[in-house]
Nucleic acid binder design. Structure first.
Length: 528
RNA sequence: GGGGCCAUCGUCUAGUGGUUAGGACGUCAGGUUUUCAUCCUGAUAACAGGGGUUCGAUUCCCCUUGGCCCUACCA
């Protein structure tokens, strides 16, 4: 039975690198019909943070990485929180002491500091000098009697090499003489990572230890511990690190590292999971498709395909994944909505107007379009649609009734519609656009032409009428569509990205449109 | 200083003792009888360097260089 674990220390936030480690453990366990468990490694009292454990659990749940055993759900090896297992570690530390695989060290912090300073000055590797290994029985007893605080150190056997096979890196070996006598039990009675981790992995019957590469150098120490206890070794797999743009270990300094930050920024769990899964791993098919759901990842995952080199966390690609998943979900939403109204959802051909959707109601043959702009936030699109479907509904009414709702929605929903409520003091350069071939002169000409036609429109409740009026303006001015619509849309919304110009005009109403155009023209005046 | 790990386009990566070294993101250039993000088409760009082994090496070996990790009574 395959058993893996995610063993984070509660630091107050879940690092995206940690999430990926959890994901790989989860995928590997699920792939082999095994168990995935969560264990909290809170052996550092100094770093206790209120609520950190709950937060960690919340994040894992959010990501959909359900564990089979863990602190809040229990299991056959509970408790799953190390601070509640202290007796166990003390017991195993005594066993090591008895077996002479460990020894008490009474050295003070000052002595250790001096020792290291000397070693550094002499260009030696900073390592414990084994001062307390050679203490006599009497000296030890005397120290214990005098209540001198001590730690328990691992006794690394000399003149040996530790060799092991890492599932990702192959054969790895370390000379024992390069290994320090690691502290196993701190003077406060808490174990260090090394002891607690080995003891728990054994007791919890972990078969595969999948963890970050930063643990590779301490793996020989862990193996020595397993051997001292006479326990079977688990398999080890050290996965590559996530890196900043400059190739240093992914850190807070250079952008967001906590999963919570990405949630706040509206990244979906599907996008994040998909993205980090492919950072250091891929199915090896060489295909175009890179979109995988969690269950698809479970099927495809294998440790052999994990890369050895670290991977840069590239936000651009995350954005792309986020978009792909939003689109996918939106399509599903539409299909569902269509079913509800007893109709069908037709997504037009990719060649032209990819994101123009038609809802065909079987009864009335009513057809309407959801603009690609609405895709920018599916919540918004859905609200508008629902309101529109109500009897006597109009787009404008729909927008008005959702005002309150929308403002409570995530950031980009608000961004998308805020132009309606007020226009910001945009820079005049927004009215021009090089790619659209619009300079200030053309912008002015277009706005005057558009103004003229908008005044003429009698029924401003019809988006069709606004549209045909503006198209007439384009013809009369003998400009390209974009040359008229870009400055007009900019003038009406004050935004670089916004809903389409006809919808914007429609929603704003005739009077407001004319006011905003006047405002834009005066901005242009000042600049010519 | 010591130990370890690693090295294919700018980024994530596929791949092989003989390939036009493939895909994705990005970037750039076009396209779209409703403008911007979207979409389509195309372009761009890589085997770190030096030695071997070999008929032949990006692939196997060694060295160099570079990057990273560890070197705490943190994990």
């Amino acid at each position: 039975m395959t058993r893996t674990r995610f063993a984070p220390s509660p630091t107050g936030y879940l690092h995206v690198g940690g999430l990926r480690t959890a994901l790989y453990n989860y995928l590997f366990a699920k792939k082999h019909n095994g168990c995935f468990l969560l264990r909290i490694e809170d052996t550092d009292q100094k770093r206790f943070i209120e609520g950190a454990r709950e937060h960690l659990i919340e994040m894992l749940r959010w990501a959909g990485l359900e564990y089979d055993e863990g602190p809040d759900i229990g299991g056959p090896h509970k408790p799953y929180i190390q601070s509640e297992r202290l007796k166990l570690y003390q017991q195993y530390a005594s066993e090591l002491l008895e077996k002479k695989a460990a020894y008490r060290c009474f050295c003070s912090a000052e002595r250790l500091e001096d020792m290291r300073r000397n070693q550094e000055a002499n260009k030696l590797a900073p390592m414990y000098d084994r001062h307390c290994l050679y203490l006599s029985e009497d000296e030890i007893n005397q120290n214990l009697k005098n209540k001198i605080p001590f730690v328990v150190r691992q006794k690394i056997p000399s003149a040996e090499t530790v060799k092991f096979k890492d599932l990702i890196r192959g054969n790895v070996s370390f000379a024992c003489k390069s290994l320090d006598d690691q502290v196993l039990m701190k003077s406060d009675g808490f174990p260090t990572y090394h002891l607690a981790n080995v003891v728990d992995d054994h007791l919890m019957e972990i078969t595969h230890v999948i963890r970050g590469e930063e643990w590779l150098p301490s793996t020989p120490k862990h193996i020595l511990l397993y051997q001292a206890f006479g326990w079977n070794l688990p398999e080890f797999a050290h996965i590559p690190l996530l890196l900043n743009k400059d190739r240093s270990k992914l850190s807070k300094r250079q952008g967001d590292v906590s999963v919570e930050e990405y949630i706040k920024k509206n990244y979906s769990k599907e996008a994040i999971i998909n993205f980090i899964a492919l950072l250091g791993w891929n199915p090896g098919s060489g295909e175009e498709n890179e979109i995988f759901s969690l269950s698809e990842l479970c099927d495809a995952f294998s440790l052999e395909k994990v890369h050895k080199a670290g991977a840069i966390f590239d936000i651009d690609k995350l954005d792309w994944f986020n978009w792909q998943w939003r689109k996918k979900k939106y399509h599903e939403n539409l299909a569902e909505t269509a079913k509800k109204i007893d109709g069908t959802c037709i997504i037009s051909s990719p060649k032209k107007g990819e994101f123009q959707y038609k809802f065909k109601d079987n009864e009335s043959e009513e057809v309407f379009y959801i603009k690609r702009t609405d895709l920018l936030n599916d919540m918004c699109g859905r609200f508008i649609h629902e309101e529109y479907k109500k009897e006597g509904g109009t787009y404008r009414k729909a927008l008005l009734t959702i005002e309150e709702k929308v403002l409570k929605e995530p950031e980009n929903a608000e961004n998308h519609l805020k132009f309606f409520f007020s226009i910001k003091d945009y820079d005049v350069s927004l009215l021009a656009n090089e790619k659209m071939k619009v300079d200030y002169a053309i912008a002015k000409k277009s706005l005057i032409g558009a103004e003229k036609y908008l005044k003429k429109i009698s029924n401003f409740n019809s988006v069709e009428e606004i549209k045909s009026g503006l198209l007439n303006a384009v013809t009369e001015l003998s400009l390209k569509n974009g040359q008229v619509f870009w400055p007009l849309r900019a003038a009406l919304t004050g935004e670089e990205f916004s809903p389409g110009v006809f919808e914007a005009a429609w929603v704003l109403g005739q009077d407001e449109c004319l006011i905003r155009i006047k405002n834009a023209l005066s901005k242009l005046e000042k600049n010519m």
